[in-house]
Nucleic acid binder design. Structure first.
Lengths: 198, 198
DNA sequence: ATAATAATGTACCGGTCGGTACATTGATTG
DNA sequence: CAATCAATGTACCGACCGGTACATTATTAT
């Protein structure tokens, strides 16, 4: 083992905390003092562990994707035998769950970042990272509908890309009305209507 | 006429500029220097005309509502004889037009503000104002569906409040995917699917 | 003309921003 | 036991933040 003093905080836990602070307050709405007091460490420790504010934000984005984004996507592909509409419904409801979780900042960190991405105060690497994430998400959803269509389980005449865009629109909308205070029950009603399209 | 030097800028025009700067960069992402250079005036003039940053933001919200929000709402009620679905379509497409206008910051200023409203850096009066606007919008949409239902032009079995929430969800979603770079053509496809619910 | 009034330009205020230098503390290696 | 090395706490940096004091410039009323 390397010599020297040990880390006096849990790096993963600190990253989770930072993610929530950024999620709640945005990039330019979050100060280093907010971060250090939320993480319970001081600035030199934060900089030694994560680089700087911009790099910490990018790592928080990655953490959010692996912790909240990707796990829910599995609802789409898991039950291959059930109707398409049920898979989409399960996916949307799973997303609605954590978007309205009272222990979380509300909505979706990706959507928050997308909204802030055109601000001049947002560093370009963060914008690029967010753009890539959104493009990949749309591609994943498009691929899902393409496979469903090839399998003959897609009644709609719409193109897979169009269905993916509509689903993305629904997801983004849910994030914002959750941010505005909508409850899980509210989102349930929205989902019930939204899946009629499929 | 009152004595004293004349205003050397157009107040309405300056408010429009300020609205766009806030719309593009958010509350905490916008600095006074950005505002003064965009409006072409200096700080004392800005403060004499609009109070402070917080009050200017609230006036920008009002301006946005009267300039972009309310005019589009009339698409819902104007053609009382046409099918409900066509009215909703006309409304959504009119919204999609300015959300993707290349001369505007993209998306919806109200949605941007809603996303930032839970940030600790956001002044409470702004949050209250935004909360009221969103509540009133939902009430207007609910009232629309209630009247349509009373007139027997509503096929859906869903409650007016639920339909209003779904419409709001669609509007918020459109704002975010427009913010993410979606074109009017993209939003057209989303609208075509979204109105199938009605 | 001159007094009164209102908007402008400049220069500045205390406070906070993101980021860091440096000395100290604690753990490992020999 | 030093000697070494990494993480911490403190104290600070220049830059920018929102906001304002004050003198100057225009404009109107007397």
């Amino acid at each position: 083992m390397a010599a020297g003093r040990k880390l006096q905080f849990d790096k993963d836990q600190a990253l989770d905390e930072a993610m929530q602070v950024f999620w709640a307050n945005g990039y330019s709405g979050t100060s280093l003092n907010q971060l250090t007091s939320a993480l319970g460490i001081n600035k030199p420790s934060l900089y030694a562990a994560f680089g700087n504010k911009e790099q910490l934000y990018c790592r928080a984005l990655e953490r959010y994707g692996s912790r909240y984004g990707e796990p829910r996507l599995q609802h789409l592909t898991k039950p291959d035998t059930s109707p398409l509409r049920e898979g989409v419904q399960a996916y949307l409801l799973a997303v609605a769950r954590f978007q309205t979780d009272p222990d979380l900042p509300g909505g979706c960190f990706f959507v928050q970042t997308t909204g802030e991405a055109r601000a001049s105060a947002m560093p370009h690497p963060v914008v690029d990272s967010m753009t890539t994430i959104n493009r990949q998400t749309l591609e994943k959803l498009t691929g899902f509908f393409e496979r469903e269509k090839a399998a003959g389980r897609l009644d709609s005449e719409s193109a897979p890309g169009t269905l993916a865009l509509y689903l993305m629109n629904t997801l983004f909308g849910m994030a914002m009305i959750a941010r505005n205070g909508a409850t899980f029950s509210d989102l349930e009603k929205v989902v019930a209507l939204a899946i009629q399209v499929f």
